[in-house]
């Protein structure tokens, strides 16, 4: 590290002293990024409209753009104009181990910040607020969770919804047959093919998936929200320097009002791949979060 320290011109050196820290003092993820010249951003394949693949297999979405805003900020703060952004596909089940084991540096998708996960990873300030509900066929007769007794239901492995559903099943002896699919795309396929009466996951994900269904009008999101899910970007634990850069980048989006444009682009306008509009206006919870960003876990909201 000391080598690159010497190579830095004095002006840049002085600048970097007042921004994050000099290269010699870099620790954790920032040090890794500086040394490897690259930041690895995680993305999902069907967490629509947060982080998913377009027709050219390129990651896109609301959270994906937030992740890129972070990468931009990192490149500025580390004075690395040629910072390489690498992408890495993750699933709900692999995202935490891959953050922990150093494969990816930052995961902005649809990951709920909760106490349990905070034992393993850290989260940025929140980027979205939602709740777990049901997606079902309008004709299915399912109105709320109580109607799921003895039914086949699907959820995505590794999500908070999966735990919630399994615990609910055991506690209330609902005798549901729960299937945990590998990702949201597969869960939705189970629902569409009639394998499951309902798909349980965050309502906004359900609304996103409806945009890729053959006939969006045959689906309904229903049921009382079972939880508060506040999404955050996930990063390695105990890495305050990197966390500060991530938080600052997101807070900047909030302060500058850029978030409103970003939100409108993904939730109020037609989105790829089919060009359908989710028409999902900003909730008052999210407005509150943007006004007062916090990285508190879902349980304390």
């Amino acid at each position: 590290m000391s080598k690159s320290f010497k190579l830095l011109p004095a002006a840049v050196l002085a600048f970097s002293m007042i921004s994050v820290s000099s290269a010699a003092e870099l620790t954790g993820t920032l040090k890794k990024i500086k040394e490897t010249g690259a930041i690895v951003l995680a993305h999902r394949d069907a967490a629509i409209p947060f982080s998913y693949l377009d027709n050219d297999q390129k990651p896109i979405g609301y959270s994906w753009e937030i992740a890129n805003a972070v990468a931009e900020r990192v490149s500025k703060e580390l004075n690395m104009p040629s910072l390489v952004v690498r992408t890495n596909l993750v699933t709900a089940q692999t995202r935490i181990p891959l953050i922990q084991n150093g494969t990816v540096d930052l995961e902005c998708g649809s990951t709920t910040n909760n106490v349990e996960r905070q034992r393993q990873v850290d989260f940025s300030v929140g980027i979205f607020v939602t709740g777990t509900r049901l997606l079902t066929k309008k004709t299915s007769g399912v109105k709320d969770f109580a109607d799921l007794k003895s039914k086949n239901v699907v959820t995505t492995a590794g999500t908070t919804a999966e735990r919630l559903l399994k615990a609910m099943n055991a506690d209330k002896q609902m005798d549901m047959n729960i299937i945990s699919a590998k990702d949201h795309g597969e869960s939705f396929q189970m629902l569409q093919s009639g394998r499951a009466s309902a798909f349980i996951v965050d309502d906004v994900i359900e609304a996103g998936l409806m945009t890729i269904s053959k006939n969006p009008s045959e689906w309904a999101i229903t049921g009382k929200p079972q939880s508060v899910e506040n999404y955050g970007c996930m990063l390695r634990k105990d890495d305050p320097a990197f966390k500060k850069v991530v938080d600052d980048a997101i807070k900047d989006l909030y302060k500058s009002g850029a978030i409103n444009k970003l939100y409108a682009k993904w939730f109020l306008h037609p989105i790829p791949p089919k060009g359908l509009n989710m028409n999902f206006p900003m909730s008052k919870e999210l407005k509150a979060l943007i006004a007062k960003p916090t990285d508190k876990p879902a349980e304390s909201l």
Partner: peptide, 15 residues
């Protein structure tokens, strides 16, 4: 048969 396989059977059984 489709209804039976997809809905009457539990997902574990059909899998």
């Amino acid at each position: 048969a489709q209804t039976w396989f997809k809905q009457d059977l539990s997902p574990t059984t059909s899998a």
